[in-house]
Amino acid sequence: MLMSSLADRYAYQFLEARAHSRSLNPITSETNLCIADAYDIAKSLDTIRTAEGEVPVGRKLGFTNSTLWCKYGEKEPITAPMWSTLFDSTVRYLDQPFTVQSLAGAMRPRIEPEVVVKLGHTPAADASFEELAECLEWMAHGVEIVVCPYPDWKFEAADAIAAFGLHGTLLIGEPRLLSNATRHHLADVIANASVSLSCDGQLLSAGYGSNVMESPLHAIWHLHQLLKTQPQFPGLQAGEIITTGTWTDAYPVAAGQTWSTAFSGVTLPGLNISFV
């Protein structure tokens, strides 16, 4: 466990680097930093941001797509999901499937198509997987713009957790309310769905819900269990949104490009995003 003063010092370094779009060396390149230490930095970031007026609205899950683990991590590959707090300042709800998104200040931005859910009820600490699914209010398509302060996207898992979970901006499409019947089968439905990702009309990738821990709902279950081991953070609460992780690889994006997504196997509208 990091001393609070050291965790705060690192947290301010990350906030300063983000504010000025400045690169940082991974902490693990200079000292030992374990996963627990990284979450201590994340906690300091949450405390500072909340004190400065930002409002926590949910959680961002990352590295839930195990097909991508071998692509990340320098000393050793990523081998487990991670999470970070989502704040209102980086979440946009879209009222139509076409939007323009600025990349100003974004460090090495990449795009990730995901599924976002909202909790309508607070799950019990000992909730079963089925009971956790019953707590969901709606589901929506989300596109996350992930960013990285580290040159060439080279880091260890702990570095990613400490750097805001690599979160930049989350764009959320039209939410679809979930019926009781839908919740019952939702894990399987999403697992068997697919999403395509295109840039300027050219198909670049397709991914499946099953890439995300066999189903994005399993990713939420993993988060619920993980939070039991992290008493410094609150458990999942009613009203939170959770973005569950990318279905495809994360692709670099640049101003002037228009990216689009389309789903098959699930009734979620795709999104078209022009970057400036």
Rank of each mutant, 00 (worst) to 15 (best):
E130K: 12
L132R: 05
E134Y: 12
C135L: 06
C135Y: 02
L136Q: 09
A140E: 02
V143K: 00
E144V: 10
V147F: 04
C148G: 08
F155M: 11
D159K: 06
A162T: 09
F164I: 06
L171H: 02
E174A: 15
P175R: 09
N180K: 13
R183H: 08
H184V: 06
D188H: 09
V189Y: 01
V189E: 10
S196F: 03
D200L: 04
L203K: 10
A206H: 06
N211R: 04
V212G: 05
M213F: 05
L217T: 09
L217A: 08
H218G: 00
I220T: 11
W221H: 15
L223W: 06
H224I: 13
L226I: 10
K228Y: 00
T229E: 05
P231F: 12
P234T: 15
G235T: 14
L236W: 12
L236C: 09
A238R: 10
E240H: 09
T244I: 15
W247G: 02
W247L: 14
W247A: 12
T248K: 07
A250Q: 15
P252S: 13
A255G: 15
A255I: 14
G256A: 06
W259Q: 04
W259M: 06
A262S: 03
S264W: 03
L268E: 07
L268F: 09
L271R: 11
L271N: 07
N272G: 11
N272M: 14
V276G: 12
